[in-house]
Simulated scan of single mutants.
Amino acid sequence: MLKAAGIQKKGACHLLRHSCATHIMENGADLRSIQQMLGHARLDTPHIYTEVSIQYLREVYNKTHPNAQTKGT
């Protein structure tokens, strides 16, 4: 599949797999679902996907934290 897309970088398959899993988790999937999707035998294996991007954390903060909310003046 990567060859067909013209991707020749070493490790690209792993990077694609990691990126997809991270995006799926950021959009609400639970760790157990990601474990099953990726075929990991143990739940502690896919824990690396819990390291979400700082941009995502900022978005969540800005949407939910009281200090980030614009106060009506």
Score class of each variant (00 low, 15 high):
residue 4 A to R: 09
residue 11 G to C: 02
residue 21 A to L: 01
residue 47 H to C: 12
residue 60 V to H: 01
residue 19 S to T: 13
residue 67 N to W: 09
residue 68 A to D: 10
residue 20 C to H: 10
residue 72 G to I: 14
residue 69 Q to L: 12
residue 28 G to V: 07
residue 49 Y to I: 08
residue 48 I to C: 02
residue 11 G to H: 09
residue 43 L to R: 06
residue 44 D to A: 01
residue 8 Q to S: 02
residue 66 P to S: 05
residue 49 Y to A: 00
residue 44 D to K: 04
residue 46 P to S: 05
residue 33 S to D: 01
residue 42 R to E: 01
residue 52 V to H: 12
residue 33 S to Q: 09
residue 60 V to R: 06
residue 36 Q to C: 02
residue 30 D to R: 04
residue 71 K to I: 03
residue 67 N to M: 07
residue 17 R to H: 05
residue 55 Q to W: 02
residue 24 I to Y: 13
residue 45 T to R: 06
residue 43 L to G: 05
residue 4 A to P: 08
residue 32 R to T: 12
residue 5 A to P: 04
residue 53 S to A: 07
residue 58 R to Y: 12
residue 1 M to G: 13
residue 45 T to C: 07
residue 47 H to A: 13
residue 9 K to A: 12
residue 47 H to Y: 07
residue 32 R to G: 08
residue 66 P to I: 04
residue 19 S to Q: 07
residue 67 N to D: 03
residue 64 T to N: 15
residue 33 S to N: 04
residue 30 D to A: 09
residue 49 Y to W: 14
residue 31 L to P: 14
residue 27 N to V: 01
residue 10 K to M: 04
residue 68 A to H: 06
residue 46 P to F: 10
residue 40 H to E: 00
residue 1 M to S: 11
residue 70 T to K: 12
residue 54 I to V: 03
residue 34 I to A: 03
residue 15 L to D: 09
residue 12 A to F: 00
residue 9 K to T: 07
residue 29 A to L: 03
residue 58 R to Q: 10
residue 22 T to F: 05
residue 25 M to G: 02
residue 65 H to A: 01
residue 8 Q to I: 11
residue 19 S to N: 11
residue 35 Q to R: 03
residue 25 M to I: 04
residue 1 M to Q: 12
residue 18 H to Q: 09
residue 36 Q to M: 08
residue 38 L to K: 05
residue 39 G to V: 14
residue 55 Q to I: 12
residue 58 R to E: 10
residue 58 R to T: 15
residue 3 K to D: 13
residue 54 I to K: 07
residue 41 A to W: 02
residue 12 A to D: 11
residue 39 G to D: 02
residue 9 K to M: 14
residue 45 T to E: 15
residue 16 L to K: 04
residue 53 S to Y: 11
residue 38 L to W: 11
residue 48 I to E: 00
residue 11 G to I: 00
residue 37 M to H: 04
residue 69 Q to F: 07
residue 39 G to H: 09
residue 59 E to G: 10
residue 61 Y to V: 03
residue 30 D to H: 06
residue 32 R to V: 11
residue 11 G to S: 01
residue 38 L to S: 06
residue 68 A to P: 04
residue 44 D to G: 00
residue 55 Q to R: 13
residue 31 L to V: 14
residue 36 Q to F: 01
residue 4 A to L: 15
residue 58 R to I: 15
residue 34 I to G: 00
residue 11 G to W: 00
residue 70 T to P: 03
residue 40 H to D: 01
residue 72 G to L: 13
residue 19 S to E: 13
residue 64 T to A: 15
residue 39 G to L: 06
residue 65 H to R: 05
residue 45 T to G: 04
residue 32 R to W: 04
residue 52 V to W: 14
residue 15 L to I: 12
residue 52 V to P: 14
residue 48 I to S: 00
residue 34 I to D: 00
residue 15 L to G: 04
residue 22 T to G: 08
